[in-house]
Design a protein around this nucleic acid. Structure first.
Lengths: 194, 194
DNA sequence: ACATCATGTTAAACTAGATTAACATCATTT
DNA sequence: AAATGATGTTAATCTAGTTTAACATGATGT
């Protein structure tokens, strides 16, 4: 159990005393998942907000034809969950599955509420974290409208080279909202351009 | 100055004492805008988080060709701002402009921080508000990927009939990420279907 | 070494939505 | 009542991205 990366992540955002860190550590769960395991399943209630210590997850949903659509990836120092399901404790719309062996820190709904009570400044911390997530989400909406598939791919490649390297191309295509065949075409175009 | 709708909005989410309400009221600004006026301009620093008392705003950006792209609308009881600009006090990517004469409650950065200090549970309130906004934003990303233009229009029409009624169709088209001509085609298709 | 499954490529035919441009309607001002 | 400007419509042509299907590569296990 190595929770230190979480504290390293929090440090620049907010100072916690040793006692606060200890309390936090006592109210979260460290868990290892194997490649392929599900952290959240569509239809279940999302029980945890998850901080990624190591590994990689994808969040996706299955449409009415059973097609998979990737919404996001999460790697070291990112958060993942179905937040809609978590905050209202209603069935999840999305699945979160591990693409590699993955270590997570799990915040259960009850323990997170308890932590908010005992360490009120965590409300501030999580407010700030969600604010950033919201801003990033809105920017992604704008990119999806205003960039071509090629430019969306180039943006992804530049912003998240660590992700592109470690996941199959058809999942990148799904994340970008295009077919794997079209991504393949884009990449061969880019290759001949240079 | 009528700030009551803000308290009515907060009430189901959090109890505030009379003193807390009074403090809050003393630290926000009520302001009337005329149709066409800008609340935030691209490039300026977004000074306020805004709660809409009455009227209607659009949030949009201008691309490199000067084309306008609508990101969101806000009506009574909604929040608006360029949150990315507000939280980091950096130049705004977006414009917020009034589509009608509009009354807003403005939370300045400094006063909001002061309110967080004096009424810490507001951190919780705003955390919850932003969580919902984030969830809605993610759902919109999913809809944009998985629904056709026609179905996105039908969703918008069902979810926000009050908005569709009061704004020009070319702004709806921009919000949906399609051209006004194509929206016109969709509407005439739907009309003949029934 | 070979078999299998997951992943990636190529190319042809197709479609959702964009673009352009001409015209229509409606409200407001003069 | 005519003129203007803002909004909406129609239709032809065009293009970004999809679909389908056949083939290629590469990793893993036996």
């Amino acid at each position: 159990m190595n929770i230190q990366p979480l504290f390293d992540y929090i440090k620049p955002l907010m100072d916690l005393t040793a006692e606060e860190e200890a309390l936090l550590a006592s109210k979260v769960t460290y868990r290892k998942y194997l490649k392929g395991q599900y952290v959240v399943q569509q239809g279940d209630i999302c029980k945890y907000e998850c901080f990624v210590i190591s590994g990689c997850t994808k969040t996706f949903y299955l449409d009415t034809e059973g097609q998979e659509h990737v919404i996001m990836f999460a790697i070291e120092n990112w958060w993942t969950a179905d937040m809609g399901s978590f905050i209202s404790q209603t069935p999840a719309d999305y699945n979160v599955q591990c693409l590699e062996n993955t270590e997570l820190i799990l915040f259960s709904y009850e323990n997170l509420e308890l932590l908010y009570k005992k360490i009120p400044k965590l409300e501030r911390l999580f407010r700030q974290i969600v604010e950033r997530a919201f801003v990033a989400s809105q920017k992604r909406i704008v990119r999806n409208f205003s960039l071509s598939a090629k430019d969306r791919y180039l943006y992804f490649k530049n912003q998240y080279p660590q992700i592109e390297e470690r996941i199959p191309q058809y999942l990148v295509a799904s994340f970008l909202g295009i077919t794997k065949e079209f991504l393949s075409k884009i990449k061969s175009q880019l290759a001949t351009e240079n």
